[in-house]
Amino acid sequence: MVKLAAKCILAGDATVGKSALAQMFRSDGAHFQKNYTLTTGVDLLVKHLAVPDTNDSVELFIFDSAGKELFSEVLEKLWEHPNLLCLVFDVTNEQSFSNCAKWLERVRAQLQGSSLPGVLVGNKTDLTGRRVVEASRAQEWAGSHGLEYFETSAKEMENFEAPFRCLAKLFHQLYRERLELFHSLV
């Protein structure tokens, strides 16, 4: 039995619903923030997740980053040594999708050689009439960058846990792989 701890960077443009998604996840769906508040710097949320089919668990330290800060240097310090990435865009906002490449580049610049497991999340799927980013296109982009793709509606409480469960599973997998590597050294 082991409890892992992972620093998870939640990134993406302003107003795509990062905080709503994180709050929803932390409160197990009890809390959807109806009014928008701009996140400045970083909000930290901690959530404990069991890894299915094991006795192990992962404590996610979710760093909900300010979407306004794409080009600022404030985030550099707060993002040091990330373990996981949750990249969010709004399926009704083309710009938020195309900016994902920049966010990804900025987070990966923090890494010194090691890999960064991550997911791409298309949020606001409840706004069906206004969708401009098709699932297939997002899926393809995610795949080509080594990310798993999820669609969510924080508002309709749909699927909001799936990306985080996936991240916990990926981190646990990575730990198991590293243990094998450590065993192979001697």
Partner: peptide, 12 residues
């Protein structure tokens, strides 16, 4: 014994 080890479980 160098074959056995302590593993860290995340974050520094």
């Amino acid at each position: 014994n160098s074959a056995t080890f302590w593993a860290t479980t995340g974050m520094f």
